[in-house]
Every structure is written in structure tokens, then in C-alpha cells.
Amino acid sequence: MEQNPIFSIRTAAFSYPGAEKPALDGVNLEIGQGEWLALVGANGSGKSTLAKICNALLTPTQGACFVMGLDSSVESNISSIRQSVALVFQNPEDQIVASIVEEDVAFGPENLGIPSDEIKKRVDRALSLTGLESYRRRGSYSLSGGQKQRLALAGALALEPKALLLDESTSMLDPEGRDSFLACLGELNNQGMTIVQITHRMEEAVQAGRIVVMASGRVVWDGLPTEFFDGEYLRWSFEEPPEIALYRELLTRSLVPPGTRPRVEELLSALCL
């Protein structure tokens, strides 16, 4: 994996014009092909900027970003990078371009000059993966927030990218929609797609194979989800879900024996009421 990273970010720094502090401040990160990485951290920690660097929407002001070996600061590499790496933004409205769902999904591949029968196949596949088949003739703007978010993902998938960068792309989905979205990502990842997922939700980060924590424009922790959820996440002031607070309280007061797992049914039977 490490021999052939899809993203190689080397002491990358980036400052927005007029900002007091750099958004990225010396980030070193290698992401291998086929990895599923969750990028977590507070608002303003540099996650979205890093995603834009990975997609060559931004170029590091210091250091470098290589995507599949291509230097993102070289103008002639940008189009290859963007074809291989799709970015799905936080707000789906930002990337809806056509008024009909299937036309919106076809927009990207059409721009790449892909033959129309191939476009049709890709659109069908993307709509089916995202559960939007029955909405294909609907108006893009008449969709709900969560449906638009799935449309934005479908548009990215139709590009058949090697890597998918998702910036809080489940924020408008309901719990059921989120589960099916994550299942869809799991399937894509099994097929070899690299996934970099920016999220605030710990229950989503659990699904990833690797977790990277950012703070003040730097990578401050990088490791496995099991290590992360074994208390590490509390150091970074992420939200403690109420069920975990309840679980810890039950343990502290010896109402359940040590070793009980934080699952409702298990806790109830461990209480011995």
C-alpha cells in the first residue's frame, strides 16, 4: 500500500488570502490506494482545505501534493488529477448543474467526452448505487436536502474516479439514508475505490479503516479506529454520545461488570434486574 500511494502530501501549507492563520500548517500524509480514511477534527481545523488540495482545487502555498505521482502544482496535471479524484462538497446545492436528475449525473462524463452509450451505463449505475433510480426524471431542485446529497454523490460516481473525497457528505441524510449511503461507500471501497471521508460523526468514522485527526491545520493523530475509540477520541473534544456517557456511568458505579460492551441489550441483561 505504502509503495504506491494515491495521495502523497508533503509538508503542505496553505493560507487563504487575508486570513491570520494558515489553514494548513505543514501536513504530511500518505493515503494508499483502496484505503478508507476518515478525516476528523473541529470546524476550522483544515479538513476541507486538505480535501481541496487533494483534488487540485487548491495548490499548497508551501510543500507539495502528489496525486498518483502527479504534482498538483503543475498546470498540465490538473485535468488528469480531477478525472481521477472526485470531490463531493458539504452542500449539494453547490454542485447541482442540471435541472433534471439524470442530466445532472450525466454532466460530468459528458464534459469528459465519453461516448453516449457509456454515459448511459454510468448514469444507470450511479443512480442505482445511490438509490435514486425512481427519481431520474425528477427536477434536481425539487429533491429534498438528503436526496440532493445523494444526487451529488451520483454525479461524482459517474466520473468513475479512483478516489472519492467526501466533505461532510452525509450531513443532510436521515439515519436510514446515512446507513444506505455508508453501505454504498463500503461496496465502492470493496471494489477498490479510495475513500477520504470528512466527518464529525463518530458513528461514521467507526466504518473507516483509518482515522486521521486534524487540529489547527496539522495532522495530530493517525491510526486505527479501534485505538481511536478506546478513549483516544476523548482527548480531541469530540462529542461523547449520551449512550457512551450512560455506559461509562454504569461502569463507574459498578452497576454492570467490567468488560460489558456498550450495547443496549447487553447492558440491560448485565444489570441483573
Partner: peptide, 21 residues
């Protein structure tokens, strides 16, 4: 209800009630 997940703490309390609390 479709799309709504009962929060785990509510499920826990519901379990307590079944046991008589």
C-alpha cells in the same frame, strides 16, 4: 417510523421499564 432511529438511551430506558422500573 421510517428513517427515524430511536436513540439508544431511550431504548435502554424502555428496557428498564419492561423490567418494572
Amino acid at each position: 417510523v421510517r428513517g427515524l432511529v430511536i436513540p439508544p438511551v431511550v431504548r435502554f430506558v424502555s428496557g428498564l421499564r419492561e423490567k418494572g422500573i
